[in-house]
Design a protein around this nucleic acid. Structure first.
Lengths: 114, 114
DNA sequence: TCCCGTGCTACAATAAACGTAGCGCTATGC
DNA sequence: GCATAGCGCTACGTTTATTGTAGCACGGGA
């Protein structure tokens, strides 16, 4: 019989990294990037800044709720920033992170022919 | 007033890539890897095969339900395989994909000191 | 003034993830 | 034989995340 099962969890981690309690940087990063739309957002910004609405359009009209949540998280992680002129753009760190994923594109092309 | 809002969505995409309807390989890949625990599983297998239980332990005791779901998806994508001798291991393709993420580790280390 | 685009939020409904328990199977122990 | 233990995997009720739709407050032109 499934017990309440919560009431305990609130203590341990609340403001945290969700799926990772170790705190190891790579885990924190994998967890952050493992949230829905995170990778996609970074990817869509690779060509230059986009307004929040353009970004939403680029992301298949994902709901603004999650998008804003991700944008906040990614901003807090210093991967993207809200430009003074409007629109979101990659920070230097974000660009560096994005380059990490460049080989992924090539990989994806080959993988799709599996 | 929030309308029913569903009843429509069932038509368009059901068995799909969730966040991506374009079918572009990179989108499919980003979507698959953007699911919870996907990246983590690949990461945890980098050192060699693990049994499902060991993998679960490595992933902070994530619930077996999602883990099995991810394992199935990653297996279908041919990134991991269930070894005859038992345990899950990366396929050649999986190893290739994992190497794509190697720079991520280094990046994460530097990032954590932001 | 009015209009339009910006970033952002509310909120009810839906889908995904969680936690716990336990199944069927196989191999090894006695 | 027959427990025992580990394997991959599933059921199912609860909690959390995501979705879809609507709309806010603000600022910059016409």
């Amino acid at each position: 019989m499934p017990k309440p099962a919560s009431a305990v969890k609130k203590a341990g981690q609340q403001r945290g990294v969700r799926g990772s309690r170790t705190g190891r940087p790579i885990m924190v990063l994998l967890d952050l990037l493992g949230r829905r739309w995170s990778l996609r957002i970074l990817w869509e910004l690779r060509g230059g800044p986009l307004t929040s609405r353009a970004l939403r359009a680029a992301c298949d009209e994902a709901s603004p709720t999650v998008l804003q949540a991700r944008l906040s998280e990614l901003r807090e992680a210093d991967f993207i920033e809200l430009l003074p002129a409007g629109g979101y753009g990659l920070t230097a760190l974000g660009k560096e992170l994005n380059e990490t994923f460049l080989p992924l594109h090539r990989f994806a092309e080959g993988w799709s022919k599996r």
